[in-house]
C-alpha cells in the first residue's frame, strides 16, 4: 500500500495547469478518491500528478439564465449542500448525498468522478437524466458535450489527452418537477450496484416529461428513452418500467449477476418514479 515515487505539481492557475497537462502522461489529481487508492496499490504509477486543488474558482457553483454551472473541483459535499444545487437541480444534490461516506464526499469532486467514469458511480445517472453538458478544456481547445456523449464506456470518456473537465452546465429543473435518485449500494464498497435517477413533470394526472438515467447496471450510464416515451404517452409506471435496461449491456460481478442488475434497474426505476411523482406538483 505504498505508491511508487512520483512528481507533484500544484499549479496556481488554470493556464499553468493546462500547459502542464499538455504532456498527456501526467495524471490529474482532483480529490484523489479513486486515483490515490490505485496509486497505493501500484495499479496506477503516474510519473507526475497535477493537483488541481489550488487552481482558483474551479469549485464555483452558480446559476444564471436558467443554467447551473458547477466547477469541476466542487466536492460532493458542496454539491450535496449547496443552496443553488438544492434549489435548481435537487436531483444532483440527492445523488451526491449517496456517494461513499462523509470523508469521501468531503474530498471527492464531481470533475474527478466523471473523468474517472466508474460504471458504478452515482453522478452519471443524474447527469444524463438532467441532460447536463460537460465543458472540456485544454491548452488549445474549449468544447462542450452532452453528458450522454461524454460517457463512452466503462472508465472511458470523451476526454482527449491534455483535456480536463472544467465545469458542468445543468439546465435548472422546473420547480414543479418531481425527482428521485434510488440506489442499491454494494455492502462493501458502497458503489451503486444499480442507481436510478428520474425527473418527472406532470400535466394534471398525466406525465408530460420523464427522464430516466441508470448507472451501475451497465458499462456506462444511460438514459432509458423507451421507458421515458412510454410514460409520456400515458403508460403507467409498472408497464413503462418493465423493460428498463432492455437492450443494454449489463455488468456482472460476485455480488450481482447481469440479470439481477437488470431486474433491479426496473424495480428501482419504478420506485424512483413513484417518489418523483409524489414530489411533482
Amino acid at each position: 500500500m505504498i505508491p511508487q515515487a512520483f512528481d507533484y505539481s500544484s499549479p496556481r492557475s488554470l493556464h499553468e495547469a493546462l500547459v502542464l497537462l499538455e504532456n498527456g502522461e501526467h495524471k490529474v489529481l482532483a480529490g484523489g478518491m479513486s486515483l490515490v487508492p490505485m496509486m497505493k496499490l501500484r495499479l496506477a504509477t503516474p510519473g507526475r500528478v497535477v493537483d488541481l486543488s489550488r487552481v482558483p474558482d474551479l469549485n464555483r457553483i452558480a446559476e444564471s439564465g436558467g443554467v447551473v454551472r458547477i466547477g469541476a473541483m466542487a466536492t460532493h459535499h458542496e454539491i450535496e449542500t449547496s443552496p443553488v444545487v438544492r434549489g435548481q437541480c435537487p436531483l444532483l444534490s440527492e445523488a451526491a448525498s449517496h456517494i461513499g461516506d462523509v470523508q469521501v464526499r468531503n474530498m471527492g469532486t464531481i470533475g474527478g468522478s466523471i473523468a474517472h467514469a466508474d460504471p458504478a458511480a452515482d453522478y452519471p445517472a443524474a447527469l444524463v437524466a438532467l441532460e447536463a453538458r460537460v465543458r472540456l478544456v485544454s491548452a488549445h481547445s474549449d468544447r462542450t458535450l452532452d453528458a450522454a456523449d461524454f460517457f463512452l464506456d466503462a472508465f472511458t470518456t470523451a476526454l482527449a489527452p491534455g483535456e480536463i473537465v472544467l465545469e458542468l452546465e445543468i439546465p435548472a429543473e422546473d420547480s414543479s418537477e418531481g425527482y428521485r435518485y434510488e440506489k442499491v449500494a454494494h455492502p462493501a464498497s458502497g458503489f451503486a450496484v444499480v442507481g436510478v435517477a428520474v425527473r418527472i413533470k406532470k400535466n394534471g394526472a398525466a406525465i408530460s416529461m420523464a427522464r430516466i438515467g441508470v448507472t451501475g447496471m451497465g458499462p456506462r450510464a444511460f438514459r432509458d428513452r423507451a421507458a421515458e416515451k412510454l410514460l409520456e404517452e400515458g403508460a403507467d409506471i409498472a408497464r413503462a418500467t418493465a423493460a428498463v435496461g432492455a437492450g443494454q449491456e449489463a455488468n456482472a460481478d460476485l455480488y450481482a449477476s447481469a440479470d439481477y442488475r437488470r431486474h433491479l434497474a426496473a424495480v428501482h426505476a419504478a420506485r424512483a418514479l413513484t417518489v418523483a411523482l409524489s414530489r411533482a406538483s
Binding site: P119, D153, A154, S189, F191, N251, D253, L254, Y255
Partner: peptide, 9 residues
Amino acid sequence: RLIDTTSRM
C-alpha cells in the same frame, strides 16, 4: 467488480 465489464469492453 470490474473484470467482467472490462473484459467485454
